Deep mutational scan, measured.
Amino acid sequence: DEETLERIAKELKEKGWTLIVNGKLITDAREALKWLLEEEERR
């Protein structure tokens, strides 16, 4: 759910983690959240 996604995005940002999505590096939590939401919609 959205709360979980926001928590994940926040944790990613705090830890300075990066996500690699389709070979693209995502360092911004907002971008990561946007991607996660798009993935949820596809299901």
Results as ranks from 00 to 15, higher is better:
Glu11Ile: 15
Glu41Leu: 13
Lys15Ile: 11
Leu36Cys: 15
Lys24Asp: 03
Glu38His: 06
Glu40Arg: 08
Arg43Asp: 06
Glu6Met: 09
Glu31Val: 06
Ala32Trp: 13
Asn22Asp: 11
Asp28Ala: 14
Leu36Gln: 00
Arg7Tyr: 04
Asp28Tyr: 02
Glu39Arg: 04
Glu40Asp: 07
Leu12Gly: 02
Ile26Val: 08
Asp28Gln: 04
Thr18Asn: 08
Glu3Tyr: 11
Val21His: 01
Lys15Thr: 05
Gly23Gln: 01
Thr18Ile: 14
Lys34Gly: 02
Glu11His: 12
Glu6Val: 10
Arg42Ile: 07
Glu41Gly: 10
Lys10Asp: 02
Glu14Lys: 05
Glu38Thr: 03
Ile20Val: 09
Leu37Glu: 05
Trp35Glu: 01
Glu3His: 09
Ile8Trp: 10
Lys13Thr: 12
Lys34Tyr: 05
Leu37Phe: 12
Leu33His: 00
Trp35Phe: 10
Thr4Phe: 13
Ile26Thr: 01
Trp17Thr: 02
Leu5Ala: 03
Ile8Val: 02
Lys15Asp: 10
Ala9Pro: 01
Val21Ile: 13
Arg7Ser: 07
Leu37Arg: 06
Leu12Gln: 01
Glu40Lys: 06
Val21Met: 04
Ile8Cys: 15
Arg42Asp: 06
Leu5Pro: 01
Lys13Ala: 13
Glu3Ser: 11
Glu11Cys: 15
Leu5Gly: 02
Leu19Ala: 04
Glu31Ile: 07
Leu33Arg: 00
Arg7Leu: 10
Glu14Gln: 05
Glu31Phe: 02
Lys34Ala: 07
Glu38Ser: 05
Glu41Phe: 10
Ala32Cys: 14
Asp28Glu: 06
Lys34Trp: 06
Thr4Val: 11
Ala29Asp: 01
Thr27Leu: 12
Lys13Gln: 11
Thr4Asp: 09
Glu2Val: 12
Leu37Ser: 04
Gly16Ser: 04
Ala29Ser: 02
Arg43His: 08
Glu2Met: 14
Glu39Pro: 02
Trp17Gln: 02
Glu38Ala: 09
Ala32Val: 12
Glu2Gly: 06
Ala32Ser: 01
Ile20His: 00
Gly16Arg: 09
Lys34Gln: 11
Gly16Ala: 09
Leu19Asp: 07
Leu25Cys: 12
Leu19Arg: 02
Glu31Asn: 10
Arg43Lys: 10
Ala32Met: 13
Lys10His: 08
Val21Tyr: 05
Arg43Trp: 13
Lys24Met: 09
Asp1Gln: 06
Glu2Thr: 11
Glu14Val: 02
Trp17His: 04
Glu38Tyr: 10
Arg42Gln: 07
Arg42Val: 04
Leu33Val: 03
Lys15Met: 09
Leu5Arg: 03
Leu12Asp: 03
Thr27Gly: 06
Ala29Gln: 02
Arg7Phe: 05
Leu12Met: 08
Leu5Ile: 08
Gly23Ser: 03
Val21Asp: 01
Lys34Val: 04
Lys34Asn: 05
Val21Arg: 00
Glu40Ser: 12
Glu41Val: 11
Thr4Arg: 13
Asp28Cys: 15
Ala9Trp: 14
Lys10Met: 06
Thr18Phe: 14
Ala32Gln: 04
Leu19Thr: 07
Glu40Asn: 10
Lys24Arg: 08
Glu3Val: 14
Gly23Tyr: 07
Glu14Phe: 05
Glu40Trp: 15
Gly16Leu: 15
Lys34His: 03
Arg30Met: 13
Leu19Pro: 08
Arg7Pro: 01
Arg7Asn: 05
Ala9Gln: 08
Arg43Tyr: 10
Glu6Lys: 11
Glu14Trp: 05
Leu33Thr: 00
Glu38Gln: 07
Leu5Ser: 03
Glu39Gln: 09
Lys15Pro: 11
Arg43Cys: 15
Ala32Asp: 00
Ala32Ile: 14
Thr4Trp: 15
Glu3Gln: 08
Leu19Phe: 08
Arg42Phe: 07
Asn22Ile: 15
Thr27Glu: 09
Glu3Thr: 09
Ala29Cys: 15
Lys15Val: 04
Trp35Arg: 13
Gly16Asn: 10
Leu37Thr: 05
Ala29Ile: 14
Lys24Glu: 06
Ala9Arg: 10
Glu11Phe: 13
Val21Cys: 14
Lys13Ser: 11
Asp28Thr: 06
Ile20Asn: 02
Glu6Gln: 08
Leu25Arg: 01
Leu37Trp: 08
Arg30Asn: 10
Glu11Ala: 14
Glu6Ser: 09
Asp1Ala: 13
Leu5His: 01
Ile8Glu: 02
Trp35Tyr: 08
Ile26Gln: 00
Leu25Lys: 03
Glu31Arg: 10
Ala32Leu: 15
Gly23Arg: 03
Lys15Arg: 08
Trp17Lys: 02
Leu25Gln: 08
Leu19Val: 11
Glu11Asp: 08
Ile8Pro: 00
Trp35Ala: 06
Val21Ser: 05
Arg43Ile: 11
Glu38Lys: 07
Trp17Arg: 01
Ala9His: 04
Lys13Asp: 05
Ile26His: 01
Asp1Tyr: 15
Leu37Tyr: 05
Leu5Val: 04
Val21Leu: 11
Glu11Gly: 05
Trp35His: 10
Ile8Lys: 01
Leu19Asn: 04
Ile20Glu: 02
Thr27His: 13
Leu25Thr: 06
Glu2Lys: 11
Leu37Asp: 02
Lys13Val: 13
Glu3Lys: 12
Leu36Pro: 00
Lys13Ile: 13
Lys15Ala: 07
Leu25Ser: 03
Glu14Tyr: 01
Thr18Ala: 12
Gly16Thr: 04
Asp28His: 03
Thr18Pro: 12
Ile20Cys: 15
Glu41Asp: 06
Thr27Ile: 13
Glu40Phe: 15
Thr4Asn: 05
Ala9Met: 14
Arg7Gln: 06
Glu11Thr: 09
Leu19Lys: 05
Arg42Asn: 04
Gly23Asn: 04
Glu2Arg: 09
Asp1Phe: 15
Ile20Ala: 01
Gly16Val: 12
Arg42Gly: 05
Gly23Thr: 05
Lys15Trp: 14
Glu3Asp: 13
Arg43Val: 07
Leu33Phe: 05
Glu41Ile: 13
Thr27Gln: 09
Glu14Ala: 04
Asp28Ser: 06
Ile8Leu: 10
Lys24Ser: 05
Thr27Arg: 12
Thr27Lys: 09
Glu2Ala: 10
Asn22Met: 14
Glu2Ser: 11
Arg30Ser: 05
